[in-house]
Amino acid sequence: MTELTLVQAVNRGLAEAMRSDPDVLILGEDIGVNGGVFRATEGLFKEFGESRVIDTPLSETGIVGTAIGMALYGLKPIAEIQFLDFIYPAFDQIVSELAKMRYRSGGQFPCHVVIRAPYGGGIKGGLYHSQSTEAYFCHTAGLKVAIPSTPADAKGLLLTAVHDEDPVIFLEPKRIYRAVTGEVPDGDHRVPFGSARVVREGSDVSLFAYGAMVPPTVEAADLLVKEGIRAEVIDPRTLVPLDEAAILASVEKTGRAVVVHEAARCCGFGGELAAILAEKAFYSLKAPIGRVTGYDTPFPYALEHLYLPNAETIAHAARSAVQAS
């Protein structure tokens, strides 16, 4: 075990993957000599050299397109997109190519690429360094979507992603890259996909949150305890595949659900979670399902503190659910 920040855990995960398998390589902008703009790849260029830590020209479609070609040839590329906000030039490669390659070739051409991207707000990044657009990728068949909220999960989910056989969109909550530290197992630590983490057990209301929304959701649970409300906090960790069993079990126990994400509300992942609960846990529900999300506006720079959910707004939604019945 080593005490690490989340971004350090990502770094250790990358190093572990590269040491254990010479087919693993990483590519992206400013990841080599510079060690990445968030330092996620620090030291890797020195250890593994320019043939495995590839500084690319400034082209996201080039990064993902070449990563796909490498994967088809048999390597295990990990592509870094500097900010999720800049992934759209590669959207065609991700959605039309990467996600569909295995399917459209009848299984002849599996294509395993991991795409890492820092996402989310709270860093004064404005419109183009703050967005949380995981739903685009969840909506596309053929992609897995992982979002860690702790250093141990960051390393464990990343190593599972690298050893998976399918494309993985790995979204890193940059707001808590350094804000949280935690014990991280050394070596080949893996956290399985499709296995939610019960962050906090409770009996009155279930709070679902992932990525950078987990800390304020735990904070909300702390506030609620003082009012005698015992909130359960569940982090799904991967949105695709989704641990529906854990989500349903929690709501069957508490009878109330609040879904939290910083992405805009319309067609956000919270809508999917709410629909699953309405279809499969309807008769367990004692109150309407609550959502605490970003607004359906572009991500504002000066007012990001009013755009992003926080412990108070999450606690408020949970309180409303409890008071409804």
Partner: peptide, 15 residues
């Protein structure tokens, strides 16, 4: 879309 992929496969062959 196949153009960048061809280049990536060539990079893999180089490696």
């Amino acid at each position: 879309t196949q153009i960048t992929q061809a280049v990536g496969a060539a990079m893999a062959a180089q490696r």
